[in-house]
Design a protein around this nucleic acid. Sequence first.
DNA 1: TCATATAGGGATAAATTTATCCCCTATTGC
DNA 2: GCAATAGGGGATAAATTTATCCCTATATGA
Lengths: 115, 115
Amino acid sequence: MYQRKIPPSLNCGLDLIGEVLYGKWKIRLLWFINEGNRRPSELQRKIPDASRRVLNMQLKELEEHGLVSKVIHPVVPPKVEYSLTDFGESLIPVLSALGNWGDEHQERLRSVILK
Amino acid sequence: MYQRKIPPSLNCGLDLIGEVLYGKWKIRLLWFINEGNRRPSELQRKIPDASRRVLNMQLKELEEHGLVSKVIHPVVPPKVEYSLTDFGESLIPVLSALGNWGDEHQERLRSVILK
DNA sequence: TCATATAGGGATAAATTTATCCCCTATTGC
DNA sequence: GCAATAGGGGATAAATTTATCCCTATATGA
């Protein structure tokens, strides 16, 4: 994997949470896993804009950071299931707060984002 | 400014808030402005890891997205003050939620981030 | 026999974001 | 005159993240 050349700033809680949540699809992955979409193919269908590859990479980082856990069932064809760890579940209320704010201000956000 | 080639995904509140908060220093800028650090030089002192240039760029985007407003006092030497708009203030509780989670899990986060 | 589904990953290119460097304005204090 | 302070920004390089392309394996169904 890529090795950072510039060390991260880890001065406060905001910095720390940023380190584990930054990544284009990570928040959505956590959200959809929490909603019960546990298998990679389900997640890919839920997030069609992302490629398989990137989702795998981001899931791996979420796993390394202890937010999700992965179970590989030794069957053919392969079956893999992700789930939130307790640590990951503790993030859900925070993600709700983010999502709710986004939903509440949806029109306005859409208009400022699309310039 | 840079023109996107890949359109953003704007399917839900999480996507929308992501569009305005992604940016290495944006959340911290909002936070420090809310704490009363309104002038660019104060913000730069608060966030020494970031260069002047990047802070200016991210402040500009926050302004374009309607989260902060900028007042230029026509004096010499120049005096500029940023403040949160009502829209920006409505984000503060959400940022608190993020920061609190980060603070509560500080040790654990630090250890998983530093591998 | 060929396509599909399931899951994974290397190699490489492209996109995007940050960092660096250097220059500009005008005033006050040495 | 020179340095410092306050604030900005163009040009370009470097860092970082995503996207694309292609290849692996096995079983099932048409």
